[in-house]
Structure formats: C-alpha cells, structure tokens
Design a protein around this nucleic acid. Structure first.
Lengths: 346, 346
DNA sequence: ATCGCTTGCTAACACGTGTTAGCATCACCA
DNA sequence: TGGTGATGCTAACACGTGTTAGCAAGCGAT
C-alpha cells in the first residue's frame, strides 16, 4: 500500500500539457482570462481524471481565507436546556453555510472561562468569522477588540453591545403566554422563572409576564413569583413554594419546559390535576414536551431559525462588510396543547 | 480603523534581533536545537509582546496536517433520537480533542446522500481524520477506499467492516433489560423495537430480548413483538397492537425511550396503570425520561463515553498508525426507576 | 599552529496555491 | 513592410511557516 501523495495542480498541468498558471485560471474560472476552448477542455479533463482538488491549506495561505467559521459555545450551568436546542441550531446554521461553501468548526468553551482559547482561533486565522452562543457580560471586552479584525455574531443577547446579534423576542413571547392564561379566565397567575433574573432571557420573560398582567389591570403580586434555575429540581422546589401559599395560583407560567418537568412532578405528588386544578404554560417547546402527561402548552423557540439567521448575518459581514449593528429578534409561536385547558382533550 | 495584518514570525525575528529560523526553533521547542538561554528569552519576549501566533494555513501547508478532524453525521430518519445524544457525544469527543490540540469540524451530510461531499473534505486535506456517525451499508465502498489515506473511525456498527469502530453492546443491554423484567416475575414480556430489524442496533436488541427469554426457558412468541420506527407515533401504534391481543403482555421492553413516550400515551388512554397493570423498560436514557410519569426505567446509553472513545481511537490512528481493527463495545447500565415496578415508589 | 569538535546561529529550500506582469504569436490595417 | 492590438499562454513572485544543510566562532588537544 504505497503512500502516494495527492495530486497537485502541477500534476494536472503536466497531464494537460500546459502551465500550472493555466490550470489555476481555468479551474477558478477567472473571468478575464483568455483561454482557448480546447485548452480549457484539456485542463478540465485532466483535473477530472486525477480527481484533483486544491489543497485547503495552500489556498488558505494565499487567499487569506480559511473558508471555515467557528461556532463557539459557552458552557452554561443550564446544560440540559442548551443541549436540547444545539442540534436544531446547528442544522439551521449548517444549511446556510453549505450554500456558501463554508465549513463549521465547533468550539465548546471550557467551563472555567478561558478567553485566550477563543482568541487563539482568531489569531491563528483558523476561522473567517465566529458565532458566539450565549455571550456573557465578561466577554464584552475581548469581543469588541476582536470584532475589529474578524466578523463576530452573537447568538443571544449582550446588553449594549454594538455587535450584530440574533435572539428570541422573550418579552413578547412571555406576554403572549401570560395573555393566553388570562384569556382562559385566570386571574391569579403564578410565574416560575427559568433562571435568576441576572440572566437577560430570564429578566425579559419576567418583564413580559408583568406587562401582560398590568395590561389586564391585575396588580403584580410578588408572592406569586418563584425562581427556577435551569433544572427540573429547581422547578420542583419553586412549585412547592407556590403550592404552599395560603391562596395558591390557579395557573402558572413556567419560563422553561425543563423546569416545568420538575414542577409537574410536584403537582402530581400533591394529587392535583392539570389543567383542571392548575393550568400550565411552558417555554421553549423542548422536543419531548409534546409527550408529557398532559402534553405541555408552551412557547415554541425557533431554534433552527436562530441558527439560520445567525449564519446569514455572519455571511453578510464576511461578504459585504460589517452591517450597521443589526439586531434580529425572532418571533415565537404559542403551541397550544392540553396543559392549559384550552386544548382538545380533557 | 486601519486594517493591519497580524504579526508574522518575521516580525518577531526583527524585534528580537535574530533570524526567522531561530524564532521557529525556539517557539516549536525543537529538541536538538542549540540556542543560548538569552536568545531564547529574547525570542519568547518578542513573541509575547507581539501576541504572535503562527498562521494555521501556513502550518497546515508545510506540515501536512490541518490539526482538524471531522465529525460526519448521516441524517437519519430518526432525527429526534440522534439529536438527543449529539450534544453529549460531542462533549466527550471535544474533551479528548482539546487535550491533543485538535479542532472539530462538524459536517452534517445532506439527506440525499452525497458521498462526493464527504470525500471533498479529505481530498482537500482539510481534515486529518474523520469520525463517521451512523454509517450505512452503502458507505462501505468509498469508506474503505479513503481509509487507506486518511484515518476513519466509525461511530455505530457497519457489518463486516475492518475499520475501527465504537458502539454500544446492544445485545447485552437488551438481555439485561429483559432479564430485569423476568426477575420481577413477568413471564409474558412483549417487545417494541426501536426500528425495523434491518437496522443493526434494532436487530441486536431483538436478539438480546430473545436470548434472555430462551435462557429463562420461555418460548419466543412472535405475536408479542411489535415494530416501532424511531418516533413516538410509531410507538403508539405498536402498543395499540399489543394491547389488542387476546392475552396482552404484563410487561414490555421498548427498545427506545422516544418510542416509549408514544406507547405510554396509549397505555394511559386505555386506562391502564404503569407499572401495576403493565411494566415498562425503555432504552437510551434520553435526558428527560427521568421526568415522565412514572419515571422510566431504562438502559443508559453512555453517549459521552461513545464520543470520547471514538476520539481516542482516531487519535491513536493519527499518532501511532492504523490500529489492527479495534472494535470497542461499550457496556450499559440499567437505570431502575419506577416504570418497571422495582423502583422506590407506588 | 593546525586539526577537530562543539556551540549558536542563519541561508535557503519546500509546501501548493492565487495572481500580476509580460512574452510570443498572429491578424489586421495603413 | 511596419505598426497596432488582440489572443493565448507562462514565468515569477507572494503567502507564512518548518526544516535541513552549513557557516563562523570558540576552544581544547595534538
């Protein structure tokens, strides 16, 4: 099994009886190159016969483009949640990249923050751009610094950052969910957050909840708000807290499906029925929440679209220059199932 | 905002007052290079001051290694299932790669098979190796061809392929699950497959089920076997079929949690209780199956380990040459919750 | 003083490609 | 015949790095 090296443009040139320059001109389809039809044909045939492909490294070196972009993921405490959407986001993103002939480098950040690790990608010019998923406040500094040399798009929200970003319209979504419960006649509606309010998404959903209540003329009651933190266990604790109230809510908006799973267990343990005794609306539309008992009414998070839009934004920056601070807020849909009492069954 | 080019080794050399060769020798720590301590120090300082990193493309070109490996995913009909484990697999894999200073290129194959797309990665020498997840029979040809020039590791099983591969020991796992139900006193145990038997994993789990029954001296009853196909809906249909039997099973081993979700819905609709009326054991330990009602007893699929082992195998091939047909079969654990009747509650 | 050996460094080549400047050849027109 | 332009192709440089061969200086031994 001889270890033969792969064919180069030189080999193609030799086989076609022309110079390497001609090969390059033909294969790259240089517009104002004067090549006779016969020569062009000979080159194409030779290239096809040898199964020639230009060496990615050489191309990268001379063109200054690696044709690769990075998807950088912050590891959040909230791994289960992030995980549920990663595949969808990646699917949307890679669809866009495929069309542009770009490749996708996946770069999970170590939990112990290491900004240096990320900047290495950029300094080595290994990627032409990057999407940062789940940016943190402490990222702002180096992010701004590098964005002057390399395209960066944020997936998620970073307060006050001029970088282009894609995120869900959390406020609108939370308001929509709460309104749905109001419309069903509930007046005493609880909230279980998906995370501490220091997380932007959590804060915005809280705001949406408040806004909807206010709009309906219902005073904000602090005791009806319990704080979840990513996990089902936290949801269980939060729900316990709400059920212990002298006058418990008749409906709860839980700003995360995963947190809702824990809450649902507690509700069952208390012998309560959903939605008859307690109506629920979740958030995220995690792939399996349709198969809970009862199927969970929830806000669908358009993960695939998030990936796609982030890709589009990055592509635009790479190809046409930095866009003037584009911020895309994707709308959500309310998926009505049976946990809210408006659905088809029981 | 001047677009200044990033510093090169030449710049470092100039600043340190040495030749570019010396810079290279120092920074790469060439073992038998004779460099005086003072010079070494000057070079290191200059490099640090300029924040110098070697250009990935240039390195790739001259060294013949891109320091990137590809994770190629076949898009299966079974997307929900695959998605549930992708993040874990990637986490295990990238942990291994990080230690070896390799990067991860994610390459989802378009559903309409395009072997050419994959080989392009290799022909362009864009990656030093590749992990193919979910290999199909039709991949055998080009796979064997390319494996002579580039390291390839399979994640999943490909009948009769000499390539190193990592997979779960499905037979042992299914036997373990079935044995558990036998030990609980069940004699009439049904099976709902995760896919048609033409899928290796499905076939092996079926074999494990049969083996356990045989070992217990229970004749194989064809009518107790129903075929699921990836989705909850298929699980619902399969369960309907079993419940319509004149003498339905008292326990069912469902070879996929996701399929089990649908089955569980049907069981509820029939007014049956789990595990009292019907005991269940699932397969995969999908992240959220602990939060079903009742929590699902299931076989834990060590996704993170799968990724890690595949990475190790690939690394070994890249660094020490092709291993002599290593096939790693990872063991599984039975996670006993409450759907089988052996758990703590009810 | 000359040889040989070690130490510390550098010149020069190779990697495979994209691209610019320029060289022949030929046709056409004056 | 000599000039002008287009046509078809190629030589040569650049990209930034790793690496081999080799050069100069110093030093001890013969």
């Amino acid at each position: 099994m001889m270890k033969r090296r792969s064919p180069t443009a030189e080999d193609v040139a030799r086989l076609a009886g022309v110079s390497r320059t001609t090969v390059s001109l033909v294969l790259n389809g240089v517009p104002d190159a004067r090549i006779s039809p016969e020569t062009r044909q000979r080159v194409l045939e030779a290239a096809a016969r040898l199964n020639y492909r230009p060496h990615a490294g050489a191309r990268h070196l001379v063109r200054g483009r690696s044709e690769v972009i990075a998807f950088v993921m912050r590891q959040t405490p909230d791994q289960v949640f992030v995980d549920a959407f990663l595949p969808e986001v990646l699917r949307g993103l890679s669809d866009v990249l495929r069309e542009a002939n770009l490749h996708l480098l996946l770069f999970p950040l170590a939990p112990d923050h290491a900004p240096e690790e990320t900047t290495r990608l950029l300094q080595e010019r290994r990627v032409d751009g990057m999407i940062l998923s789940g940016p943190r406040f402490e990222d702002r500094e180096w992010l701004e610094h590098w964005a002057q040399e390399t395209p960066v798009v944020l997936l998620g929200h970073l307060a006050g950052s001029p970088l282009p970003s894609v995120d869900v319209d959390n406020l609108q979504a939370a308001a929509m969910a709460t309104c749905h419960l109001l419309r069903l006649g509930h007046r005493r509606i609880g909230l279980i957050t998906n995370a501490p309010l220091s997380y932007t998404a959590s804060y915005e959903r809280w705001l949406g909840y408040r806004w909807a209540l206010e709009e309906a003329g219902i005073p904000y009651d602090e005791t009806l708000v319990a704080f979840g933190a990513f996990t089902p266990i936290s949801g269980a604790a939060a729900m316990e807290q709400l059920l212990r109230l002298p006058e418990p809510p008749t409906a709860v908006f839980i700003a995360s499906d995963v947190v809702a799973f824990g809450a649902l267990q507690v509700i069952r343990r208390h012998g309560l029925r959903v939605p008859q005794d307690l109506a629920l609306v979740g958030f995220d539309d995690v792939p399996l929440s349709a198969y809970l008992d009862p199927p969970l009414t929830t806000v669908h998070l358009p993960a695939e679209d998030l990936g796609r839009e982030a890709g589009r934004l990055l592509l635009q920056w790479i190809q046409e220059g930095r866009p003037s601070t584009a911020t895309i807020r994707l709308a959500t849909r309310l998926i009505i199932r049976q946990s809210c009492g408006a659905g088809g069954g029981t």
